[in-house]
Amino acid sequence: MRGFESQLLRPGDWLITGLAASAVIALAMLAWRSDGATHVRIYQSGKLFAELDLAAHRTLDVPGPLGLTTVEVAQGRARIAADPSPRQYCVRAGWLSQSGQVAICLPNRTSIELTGSKPRAYDSLSY
């Protein structure tokens, strides 16, 4: 009688385990792949203020209750460069480059959102 340990995993078991691990890795890479952004939407008080193409270099001042918020677009990315809000969270967000990323300046009621060529299947509100 052969040893009990040698009967636990046969060559076919190793093959199935390897194929399953490869499938899990491929599906994870597919699920977490992000779409490159092509446009930035600028909102003021919940209404669309402007939509800009990320391919062009541009700076736009958006008026709000506290003053002007400066949105900068360059090299396929966008950021809020300056804002009169006291804590500067939206400015600290830095450059956004992936579709679905958002920077929000709540005291000045201004936000930017990057959009891509295809709509996002989910966002933070979907959870």
Rank of each mutant, 00 (worst) to 15 (best):
A81G: 06
L68H: 01
A20L: 12
L125E: 15
G12I: 15
R120T: 10
Q75P: 02
S99N: 04
D13K: 07
Y89L: 15
G12L: 14
L8G: 05
G46Y: 06
G46V: 08
K47Y: 14
P86D: 03
F49N: 09
E51G: 05
D83V: 00
M29T: 11
R33A: 15
W32F: 14
H39S: 13
D53M: 10
S126E: 05
L114T: 03
G116N: 02
L66M: 10
G67C: 05
R2M: 10
G64V: 06
L52S: 06
H39I: 08
E5H: 15
R77W: 03
T110K: 02
S22G: 15
T69E: 04
I104L: 05
S45R: 12
V24P: 07
S124F: 10
L27V: 09
D61L: 10
S117M: 05
T110C: 03
M1A: 11
L106S: 06
L96E: 00
D35M: 08
H57P: 14
T115V: 08
G36D: 13
E72K: 13
D61Q: 07
C90K: 02
S45I: 05
P107M: 02
L30K: 06
V71W: 04
G100E: 00
S34E: 12
R79D: 00
L19N: 04
S85P: 02
I42Q: 09
T110Q: 00
P86I: 03
L30T: 04
I80A: 00
L96A: 00
A56L: 13
A31N: 07
G18H: 07
Q101M: 06
W32Q: 09
P11G: 15
A74M: 07
Q98C: 12
T115Q: 06
L9N: 14
A82E: 10
